[in-house]
């Protein structure tokens, strides 16, 4: 194999020029961003709940307060994994255990 024609060697040589702590900080930033992809799930799920809630209110407008209460309680439970992602991102940003 010729010199640094290997991509892994090239990356390691590129990263080797920085302090270790700077590499940790940089990759923590990328990790904090990647943790927020967990927000896709509750977005889709709570939107589905909102749609079904609107449909239920259309079928029986008298049950509106019960429908809204059930919808909001279910949405609050669905929120939890999104909050898990937010907690991991905030830990990586502000209480980083690696620095």
């Amino acid at each position: 194999m010729i010199g640094d024609a290997n991509i892994v060697d090239f990356l390691l040589q590129f990263l080797g020029q920085f302090d270790g702590i700077d590499v940790i900080r940089a990759f923590s930033a990328i990790g904090a961003g990647t943790a927020m992809i967990a927000g896709v799930g509750p977005g889709i799920g709570q939107g589905f709940a909102a749609g079904k809630g609107a449909e239920a209110v259309g079928i029986r407008p008298g049950a509106q307060s019960d429908v809204i209460r059930t919808m909001l309680l279910g949405a609050a439970v669905a929120e939890t994994t999104g909050i898990y992602g937010l907690i991991v991102a905030l830990i990586l940003l502000f209480a980083n255990p690696f620095m």
Partner: peptide, 16 residues
Amino acid sequence: PINIIGEFANPVSLSF
């Protein structure tokens, strides 16, 4: 444990 975390998730989600 999920119920306990869910109790704390409510004010976190409200405030954020």
